[in-house]
């Protein structure tokens, strides 16, 4: 199955089809255990963030979370953001390797740069639905992307 892409100006955000997505721009890929996912930033998020150099979690592993609950902070060369749980569920553990050096978010965002593992029963967006979600908001973002990043 070939990846989908979403065009952010000239930048092609790759949206792999081997996983599902949340509306707050995270990907989730089924892990070994049932209802368990690896979670990371989509190429769209990473493109907006640019080089990530700081990542901190404000909750402990194995914490139950609800959608929109604050779980951490991220800072990059261009942006800061609080991070929020994508859905109700349990955050199992965090990607240890990012804690010292979060650069894998930029270099391998769909692989080694995953953020945490999470258990949840909620259903997510398909890759197609996520691309549609991005497209719906794109007109307004375009100005942002061009003004800021190209």
């Amino acid at each position: 199955m070939s990846d989908l892409t979403f065009l952010m100006g000239k930048f092609e955000a790759r949206i792999p089809t081997d996983r599902v997505y949340s509306d707050n721009h995270l990907w989730l890929q089924a892990d070994d255990e049932p209802n368990c996912y690896r979670v990371g930033f989509t190429a769209y998020s990473v493109r907006l963030l640019q080089d990530v150099y700081f990542l901190e979690w404000s909750i402990d592993p194995h914490s139950a979370v609800h959608k929109k609950q604050e779980i951490g902070e991220i800072e990059s060369s261009k942006a800061v953001s609080t991070l929020y749980a994508p859905v109700d569920g349990t955050i199992l553990d965090f990607n240890e390797r990012l804690l010292d050096d979060p650069s894998a978010i930029n270099t391998d965002g769909y692989g080694k740069g995953f953020l945490f593992r999470m258990q949840t029963e909620v259903t997510f967006l398909t890759p197609e639905e996520y691309v549609a979600h991005l497209a719906a908001g794109w007109d307004k973002t375009e100005k942002l992307i061009k003004g800021q990043y190209n």
Partner: peptide
Amino acid sequence: HKTPAIAGADGEVGDVKIDLSKLFGAP
């Protein structure tokens, strides 16, 4: 407060960073 904008960071001038929190699901 841990959020710089609430703790008094000057958030509206210069090369201040964009807050992407809304994008990532902030209430």
